[in-house]
Amino acid sequence: MDKRPYDNKAWLLVLPVFLIVAISAIIPLMTVVNYSVQDVLGPFQRVFVGTEWFEQVLNDDRLHGAFLRQLIFSGCVLLIQIPLGIAVALTMPVKGWQSSLCLVLVALPLLIPWNVVGTIWQLYARPDIGLAGVAVNSLGIPYNYTSSAFDAWLTVLIMDVWHWTPLVILLCYAGLRSIPEAFYQAAKIDGASAWAVFRYIQLPKMRRVLTIAILLRFMDSFMIYTEPFVLTGGGPGNATTFLSQFLAQIAVGQFDLGPAAAFSLIYFLVILLLSWIFYTYITHTDREDAR
């Protein structure tokens, strides 16, 4: 028999992944870093400007506005979608064809492309011909998302809730299904109320999936672009201009590559930081569990 050491060849198998990550992530990222510290005046004409773009971007009032809007929006998304997702998951049927049907119905919005979601709501909420828009107005409530900042906000928020709560529902549903029947039986015998069952069994057992749901929803909503772009184009005024759209405005609209690159990096770092905080939180609680 040969005496080759344990599968050192296996490292070769990792090589393709390295290459793909390098081409798809690292090289573009380095390009952005490159742009963020230079002023591009024309082809082959570049000047090193240091942290100037960063200072400019960080002192930009429009960015502050967009950042604040973004935080409020993401906060609202979490505050609505997480409790709503839990509530719906709790009321879903557990077995039989009803549960399969519910799962399919709930998952439907997740299957629709982002821009189509925007288009659907753009039509649906139109005050002149849209079903929802007309209905609300006929109730005597003035509603027009193209002119009222509040209405636009509300529409984007409702649209996001409609689109993404199903993800939270599915995650919570899976978490709930993994609780052994004995826990419910023991709680019944202990005389626990429905609230106590939720508080002491369902919620603790869902903690892990909820952490994932919060992380995903936070990151996604923090990067939201397509739907408000299609629906309101960021308006009226800047009312629904979130960070991504603001970035696109600088980069594509004004062709300010330097500030756009600097802003991209800041944006990237913020998301990375927040994800890292979540990640350490999850692994920390896991380790606590193991003890």
């Binding site: 052994p180 004995a182 002491y200 603790p204």
Partner: peptide
């Protein structure tokens, strides 16, 4: 029960 049921 067969597997311990406790409130975590």
């Amino acid at each position: 029960f067969q597997f311990p049921v406790i409130y975590d």
